[in-house]
Design a binder for these strands. Structure first.
Length: 297
RNA sequence: GGCCCGAUAGCUCAGUCGGUAGAGCAGUGGAUUGAAAAUUCACGUGUCGGCGGUUCAAAUCCGUCUCGGGCCA
């Protein structure tokens, strides 16, 4: 008997992924696996809009709240966590319903990691002290091909490309080419869907959810997270709530800022998933059952 | 009632000596394989509050009206 292939549910934040995941899990006799970079963390449930206690109790959910707020995370770690969980679910004959909005994490999971050297904290610290122009010059000399297709204004991308060259002693462009060549074949084997909603609808769902978060303990949650790693601090809402707690902004401003940041994030997610042609587009209308459920994720 | 200040992009505002307007934010689209809720790129036509006047030419000067805000009664 072949094990059931995973089913992927993607979409922008607040589009209704969690609710749809529950539906699909029942239909496919599945269990839910998180694919959200921030719902991985414990103590960030409210701000990251993790599934509610009731939802978690409905059927098995995996990889929610498994990391300490202080722990770093990246796509590689995520895959290392997710692979065994998915295999274990399949071994019991159940379908893994992989649900989340972190495009890069999902991409690593579905298409595998390119054979590139892992991030090196010491090297990154060193590069962070150099000027961008300086990094660009070195990348251009070590790997002109990679330099020509890298957004040279983007310090992160330049640093990473250079990091690959320096750590591997090879050209980042060569290492990446090999991996990219296989991705098309992989895509044809995958199945999943991406939720699509009208902008106005999504924006109003975001506003509702932000309000609910702020009313539902987000301030206390963020306050309790003091002195955690910079990774966790990147969660939308964290910085804004800290400013509110410090008295730098008022509650309305805080809410507005969180809404704007969330809308921008949702747009980036849509941009990412639009490129994943293997995902079936699921158009959801305003008065869907997900909206009635009162949950916006 | 009198006087003063303001009215310019969805919002907050800039606009020199008159030469038909531009920043930030918001918004939209894109990139994106080990920081990704991150990072980054591109995109700016709007009755310059209304009406009249002066002028070759008015967001800009003058008059008047409307709406805010303030001060004096």
């Amino acid at each position: 008997m072949t094990s059931p292939p995973p089913f992927y549910i993607c979409g922008p934040t607040a589009s209704g992924k969690s609710a749809l995941a529950l539906e699909m899990a029942e239909k496919l006799d599945g269990e839910i696996v998180n694919a959200d970079a921030f719902q991985l963390y414990r103590g960030l449930e409210i701000v990251s809009a993790a599934p509610s206690a009731e939802e978690l109790a409905t059927l098995p959910h995996h990889l929610y709240g498994v990391l300490d707020p202080g722990e770093p995370a990246d796509a590689q770690l995520y895959v290392r966590l997710a692979k065994p969980v998915i295999a274990e679910i399949q071994s019991r004959g159940k379908t893994p319903i992989v649900t989340g909005g972190s495009g890069l994490y999902l991409k690593f999971l579905t298409h595998g990691a390119a054979p590139l050297p892992t991030a090196d904290a010491a090297l990154r610290a060193e590069m962070a002290a150099r000027s961008l122009e300086d990094l660009v010059i070195e990348l251009e000399s070590l790997d002109p091909v990679e330099a020509s297709r890298t957004a040279l204004q983007n310090r992160r991308f330049v640093s990473r490309a250079l990091e690959i060259c320096l750590l591997s002693g090879q050209k980042a462009s060569d290492l990446r080419d090999g991996w990219e060549a296989q991705t098309a074949a992989i895509s044809s084997q995958l199945r999943g869907l991406v939720i699509q909603r009208g902008r106005a609808d999504l924006h109003s769902r975001i506003a509702l959810r932000t309000r609910a978060m702020l009313d539902g303990g987000a301030l206390e949650e963020v306050a309790a997270l003091a002195d955690v790693s910079s990774n966790c601090e990147k969660a939308i809402g964290s910085r804004e709530i800290r400013a509110l707690l410090a008295g730098e902004i008022d509650r309305t401003t805080c809410e507005d800022l969180i809404n704007a940041a969330t809308r921008q994030y949702a747009k980036r997610q849509e941009s990412w998933f639009r490129r994943e042609k293997w995902l079936e587009i699921k158009v959801v209308q305003d008065c869907s059952p997900f909206l009635k459920s009162g949950r916006a994720d």
